[in-house]
Computed example of a mutant assay.
Amino acid sequence: MNDAAPATTPDGPWLIVGLGNPGPSYAANRHNVGFMVADLLAERLGGGFRSHRASRAMVLEGRLGPPGGGGPRVVLAKPMSFMNVSGGPVGALCSFYRVPPDRLVVVHDELDIGYGVLRLKRGGGDNGHNGLKSITSTLGKDYFRVRFGVGRPPGRMEVAAFVLRDFSAVERKDLDYHVDRAADAAAALVTEGLERAQSQYNG
């Protein structure tokens, strides 16, 4: 494996990061929906993630759009640190691939919007999300987010317990649909720009 840094080019890559926690015990958690979206995008690119030793992340490089269509260069990534220290791997990836904040897209779970609802934005606060908090402390806040709604915890359930539980049986019935739509939204943000992607997917 060669982790030599790529040469800088005018057509630099986009970095799409799906947030989650590593390991099978977390795989189906609400907090891991960013990983689910990244996995689907990787499937669409027809490749598999590989370990990127310089950043403690799994990465896949490719181009969005139809095969052979010369779409934008992208690096898909899943940090292999735990959520609350995601900023280290994401910062290392941005440095390695020379990705500025305006080419970084972070896909994450969002408590303050309903299950399956998407909101695309650039910048803003972290809303108590530890993964975003860590990335912002490393890179500043001027990056793109694909916010995947998981809703608020019921009753008096603690937020941490809620996001570290698997999606409910009812939610799982159409989870694939919502993950597919979030992957479409991330791709549209890169290929069509924020405003057009927002008009299609913010709901």
Rank of each mutant, 00 (worst) to 15 (best):
K173P: 06
K133S: 09
L132E: 01
L175S: 00
E110Q: 02
L111I: 04
K133G: 08
F144D: 10
T136A: 14
A183G: 13
R156Y: 07
D176K: 12
G151F: 02
D166R: 15
G151S: 06
L118V: 15
D174I: 08
D112A: 04
V117P: 10
V179H: 09
R119W: 07
D174S: 14
V117E: 15
D174L: 13
K141E: 15
L132N: 00
L111T: 01
I135N: 07
D174A: 12
K121R: 14
A169M: 12
A169H: 14
G125L: 12
S137M: 14
D166E: 11
Y115E: 04
T136V: 14
L139D: 03
E158M: 08
F167A: 08
R165A: 14
K133N: 04
P154I: 07
R145P: 01
L139K: 04
G124A: 08
V150D: 00
R119K: 14
V146R: 04
I113P: 04
S134G: 05
R122W: 04
F144V: 09
V150E: 01
R165E: 13
L111R: 01
G155M: 03
V179A: 05
G128C: 00
G131L: 06
H178G: 02
P154A: 13
Y115W: 13
H108A: 11
N130P: 05
I113E: 08
L111V: 00
Y177M: 14
R172M: 11
H178I: 01
R145V: 05
